[in-house]
Design a protein around this nucleic acid. Sequence first.
DNA 1: CTTGACTTCCTATCGTCGATAGGTATACTC
DNA 2: GAGTATACCTATCGACGATAGGAAGTCAAG
Lengths: 195, 195
Amino acid sequence: MTAGRVAERREAKVASIVDAAWKLAAEHGIAGISLYALARAVGMRQPSLYEYFDSKHALYDAMFADGNRKLFERIEALSLPRDPRAAVKKYMRTFLDFALEDPARCELLFERHIPGFTPSPESYALAEEVLGRVGTLLNEAGVTSQGDIDCIVAMVGGLMAAQLSNDPGGTRWSRHLNRLIDLYLDDVNTRSTGR
Amino acid sequence: MTAGRVAERREAKVASIVDAAWKLAAEHGIAGISLYALARAVGMRQPSLYEYFDSKHALYDAMFADGNRKLFERIEALSLPRDPRAAVKKYMRTFLDFALEDPARCELLFERHIPGFTPSPESYALAEEVLGRVGTLLNEAGVTSQGDIDCIVAMVGGLMAAQLSNDPGGTRWSRHLNRLIDLYLDDVNTRSTGR
DNA sequence: CTTGACTTCCTATCGTCGATAGGTATACTC
DNA sequence: GAGTATACCTATCGACGATAGGAAGTCAAG
């Protein structure tokens, strides 16, 4: 597992390229990254990038994995309240804040903004880990059916997309998050304990 | 206003190009349209398209307007029930069905899938007409605050996006539409008639 | 320390794409 | 019938992602 100097140097370089790519994405949108500009940003010529990524999509895949890893870390660092409903709220709020703080990242991770790009199975596994936790958290809050989980996830996604495309940086949609969660969880409760 | 033979021929040609573009979009995705292929599909060479559209974005703009016009027509043809809640449901269902029946169109009209594309004010006005009707319909159903309208629109959008990207052609998310509308309208009701 | 292999970066070039320049034949107008 | 606008063409541009092939630097084995 110990990398060896070569592999270590290589990994560091890959990481620095991905970092530079995020900066360019923030400036020009996720689809606005040009390999020429990216190469110059890390002191290279464009073809040299192919030493580290087989294609532009491979770069996007690395960014996708990187973004999901950051999200996972932030969620890992969370100390969730005991109350399941409060935990769901905190989790979802953390997710929403993360998504909204970088539109370009959001486009890559949560919208299908790059024509033809599909994350590799390894990268997607990271995304599913985050989604899996939503499932268990919701379970603990009394949400057991997949349909209900789907609805809640879709609602949060809807808030995110609307916020991002109509009022980026604002809170016109995101501020409704907690209320919507309460609304839905109350309904689930009513349905399960005799209506 | 009467077109004259030249303008008439021109309009017909523009319409046929837009139609061909929708076909290509259905095949290769909205971003996968190449002007070369589009030109050949209507029996032209690529530069000749510039006789009808100043740029590719102008083509997208025409498609955006065309799509919204089709949506508006379908909504116009609707005979809405007197019951406001039923009317909202029927309207939203019509919208959702329309959105889901052509993923490529959906990407152009309701997601921001083309890097750098923003519809022209004239084209966007068509979209706002559809959105405006949602507002009045919801008003009649007792939803008066902008925040509530935002939430409902976001929820429907969330269902649409989730359905399209995770289960295109299916109903895993879209089938929850009516229930979600009921849930939210009930809540609005509870809030307004003393809680 | 030297040799040979691997790593890392380069220049040159390709094919595709959107876009422009400039020309020509057809169609309409006076 | 002459002049103009329309509608299409060929040729070419510049930007982009990608490939070919080579040169310098790094590193480990003898």
